[in-house]
């Protein structure tokens, strides 16, 4: 299964949000603007983290990129095409467990490929590859209900990646996990991003997670949701480091963390 579009080189813009706004109808002619004039670009093979306080509309932005919601105005551009609805080029991993409990781990990972009519032998091969990538080879024939929460999220990641999307979208994927598992999963995700050459757009409210994972941080403020600041964690010197202690001990980490904490606090004082 070859990439459908090889024209965009790593480092060039793959996704572009232009002046996205979204209003929700409250009935009786009233409406509330949840998201206002959001614009940012995501570069190919980057990990872009959308960070912000709860209620800033970061999940809604991600859902609009997925095509699960439509903006009231603005343009969503993926490789020169307008996003008009959900599609296999934008696979999503949710915070809630989404494993199909009636299918084995392997069948879960094969699901997207089966839907997209990938021949059985290739399906099997790719599934095994991605199951190995997330370290679940021993559990390939187990049911998801037999797995722990972290393992189930790894199934969801493998299932999405095996479907070869242009973008891997993640909505607080590790939010339901305990601290230790979350930290392992974050390190695993850095490794996966390196190996699988995939572009990731992820939503979180965890500052540490954002700084550790991101090549680009989009900080959103609330009421209405806007982009307050775009940050590239320069202290990582453009390197991906899959070791969390190492990142935290780098010079510049704590300065960035303090900066983002201040941004969060400003948002908190809005209420």
């Amino acid at each position: 299964m070859a990439r459908t579009n090889e024209t965009i080189a790593p480092g060039e813009t793959i996704l572009s949000l232009q002046n996205i706004s979204k209003s929700f109808d409250l009935g009786r002619g009233r409406s509330v603007e949840a998201i206002s004039g959001v614009s940012f670009d995501v570069k190919k093979n980057d990990i872009c983290v959308i960070l912000g306080p709860s209620g800033c509309g970061k999940s809604t932005v991600l859902r609009m990129i997925a095509g699960l919601e439509t903006p009231t105005s603005g343009l969503l551009d993926l490789e020169g095409r307008q996003i008009a609805g959900p599609g296999r080029d934008r696979g999503m991993v949710f915070q809630a467990y989404t494993s199909f409990d009636w299918l084995s781990v392997r069948k879960n990972v094969e699901f997207g490929m089966k839907v997209n009519q990938v021949p059985a032998s290739e399906r099997r091969e790719r599934a095994d590859h991605f199951i190995e990538l997330v370290g679940l080879t021993k559990f390939a024939d187990a049911y998801p209900t037999q797995l722990s929460g972290g393992m189930r999220q790894r199934v969801a990641i493998a299932r999405t990646l095996a479907n070869d999307p242009e973008l891997l979208l993640m909505d607080e994927p590790f939010g339901a996990l305990d601290a230790e598992t979350r930290w392992h999963m974050q390190e695993l995700l850095v490794e996966i991003a390196e190996t699988a050459n995939t572009t990731i757009v992820m939503v979180t409210h965890d500052i540490e997670e954002a700084i550790f994972l991101a090549d680009q941080i989009v900080f959103m403020s609330r009421h209405p949701g806007r982009v307050k600041e775009e940050i590239r964690p320069e202290f990582k010197l453009g390197e991906r480091i899959a070791d969390k202690e190492k990142v935290i001990s780098l010079e510049g980490y704590s300065a960035l963390e303090r900066h983002i904490m201040r941004l969060m606090r400003e948002e908190g004082s809005k209420e």
Partner: peptide, 25 residues
């Protein structure tokens, strides 16, 4: 809903979602 939305972002159509996600679930 997440199960249905997951299937949507994997490229499944209406028929597949009803038959292969909603029904078994």
């Amino acid at each position: 809903n997440e199960l249905i939305e997951t299937a949507l972002t994997l490229g499944a159509g209406r028929g597949t979602i009803v038959r292969s996600v909603i029904l078994p679930a």
